[in-house]
């Protein structure tokens, strides 16, 4: 059977899915990028291949799509048919898995976005611009500081009995506020709940500003695993929130679906095969000296051949 590979290389996680022709997800991987996207992509491909073999189904990868902030890197390594931004990928995935969806709330590692869909097409979107307050990284950081595993962080918020207000505008101020409240003697559950409410408030005021949030509402991205944030959203929006089964790999699902659409138009895949996981890839960078812009140009090597180059503002270094 034909299937499509979707790869989402984000700041915090690298996700890989394999989506069949029947729109079934048969492989879904959520790996930490840990600041090493190249190695993580290779490791992910290896794992995906092993899982695929375990399934013992006759699967042929007919197309590949990449998305996320590392989409160009992943794209040149695997030979992607589609390289798409994460906003489009997330919208496509939600429409595929939750037909009729009208609003998508997405909170990832470094960014958060809202996507408005009407009659199946994206009509409006917004993405956090200057500030990372209210994204996964900050929650990660606070969980680490409080020594609570991130998986339990949200559930703890649900045990809160009293409201504690935390400033959510800026992570630096939020943290000092949390420390202040903790030293005053508030319970941890209350403080974490306060943080969840603050993040949601900040998200709705900043990213969701001026947008009409209509149901069905889907909440996806890594932070959707957090029960406290989920509860805060339901309470502040006043509508039930749907968390799709593959909420943390939706970008990859969307990339796979986009590849599927592309291949259905009659193109042949550029996929280089799972063997790329065993090949040598490295990156190097240099500062261009042709003008004072001093662009930091990055090169990607496959064995000894340059397969990708970016970072330049003028076309001088285009491949």
């Amino acid at each position: 059977m034909k299937a499509y590979l979707g790869i989402d290389v984000g700041s915090v996680s690298t996700n890989i899915v394999i989506l069949t022709e029947n729109k079934e997800v048969i492989v879904s991987l959520y790996l930490r990028t840990s600041g090493r996207p190249l190695e993580t992509i290779k490791r992910g491909l290896k794992e995906a291949y092993e899982q695929l073999n375990k399934e013992k189904k006759d699967i042929e990868i007919a197309g590949v799509g990449t998305t996320g902030s590392g989409r160009y890197l992943a794209g040149v390594i695997v030979g992607a048919d589609v390289i798409k931004n994460e906003i489009t990928a997330h919208a496509v995935a939600a429409s595929l898995l939750v037909p009729g969806v009208q609003t998508i709330l997405e909170i990832g590692g470094q960014d958060s976005k809202i996507i408005i869909i009407r009659n199946g097409i994206v009509t409006d979107f917004a993405m956090n611009t200057v500030c990372a307050a209210g994204t996964g990284s900050f929650l990660d950081q606070q969980a680490a500081r409080l020594n609570i595993p991130i998986d339990e962080f949200g559930n703890l918020a649900l045990q809160s009995k009293t409201k504690v207000r935390i400033a959510g505008r800026c992570t630096v101020f939020a943290e000092s506020d949390m420390i202040h409240k903790q030293q005053m003697g508030h319970s941890l559950a209350d403080i974490i709940n306060g943080l969840c409410e603050a993040l949601v408030r900040n998200y709705l005021n900043n990213v969701g500003k001026g947008k009409e949030i209509l149901p069905p509402i889907v909440f996806q991205g890594g932070v959707a695993a957090n029960a406290g944030i989920r509860a805060a959203f339901e309470q502040q929006i006043g509508h039930p929130i749907i968390i799709p089964k593959y909420f943390n790999v939706m970008g990859a699902v969307g990339a796979a679906q986009l590849a599927r659409e592309k291949i259905q138009q009659g193109e042949r895949t550029k996929f280089k095969g799972f063997e790329v996981a065993d090949m040598n890839y490295r990156t190097s960078s240099f500062e261009c000296t042709y003008c004072p812009n001093a662009c930091e140009v990055v090169e990607v090597y496959e064995e000894d051949k340059v397969i990708g180059r970016w970072g330049n503002r003028c076309p001088r270094w285009d491949l």
Binding site: S69, K84, N85, I87, N119, I121, V122, T123, R313
Partner: peptide
């Protein structure tokens, strides 16, 4: 860094394309 702007531009252009298609 152009990345943030390119992402938003791409998504915006996708939106416009789908809208025109519809």
């Amino acid at each position: 860094a152009k990345a943030g702007i390119t992402t938003r531009l791409e998504a915006f252009i996708d939106l416009l394309r789908r809208k025109r298609l519809e």
